[in-house]
Amino acid sequence: MATNAKLINAELIRVTDVRKEYNNGTVKALNGCSFSVGQGEVLSIIGASGSGKSTMLRCLNMLEVPTSGHIIFDGVDLADPKVDLNLHRRKMGMVFQHFNLFPHKTVMQNITLAPVYLKLKTKAQAEAKARELLQRVGLPDKANEYPNMLSGGQKQRIAIARALAMEPEVMLFDEPTSALDPEMVNEVLDLMRDLAKAGMTMVVVTHEMGFAREVANRVMFMDGGQILETGTPSQIFDSPENPRLKDFLSKVL
């Protein structure tokens, strides 16, 4: 699809042979996954529940520590125990299925907490940036509200603003619309679409096939902890090769 064509420059993340085992190897969540994400690329990970796609995403910023393998981000192997993860996580924004806003903080405090605490910005700078981001996510009047006063879609847009406040190099989305009421899905997807257009590198685990087809540069299909097929959206959705991908698509499309 021509609209998705984009010049992918340098490689931002390279994942090599990542495995994740639970219970002393009896449960294999990831079974040797390798792929890379280019600067400015939007990569969508699709697959059934339990296919390992969320685990894979969570390994990218080491919320889930792989049993073996390498995750090279900005030339540093995050899977190396000697690496200061806190430093590198700043550059990877993450958006969760259940938003995970801090309920005891206002929207403004949610957004400014990390940049101010980590001394990346003064309070005034962080608040100015937060106002700009609130404008961008379409919620400029919610700065002083607490999260429990917001709808699901609003919460997720604030969560995206909170991640953007760190000025990350890549945004990781873990099923960002799965916990939303149907009428709120689009407000979040629209925002993600804008981000992609603005050139943000994004890795998106999603059940929204329409979004993957329209916005992603590349789609990756996972099943049983393995990457079974990767390709452009038209390759994946219009001419799938792997039988399990065909089966999956026949169920969800």
Binding site: R90, G93, F96, F102, M166
Partner: peptide, 19 residues
């Protein structure tokens, strides 16, 4: 999820506990 959100912003485990 609160801990995960905080850690994903680059806050240390101590800062996460405290804040």
């Amino acid at each position: 999820g609160q801990t995960e959100a905080s850690r994903s912003l680059g806050l240390s485990s101590w800062a996460t506990m405290k804040l």
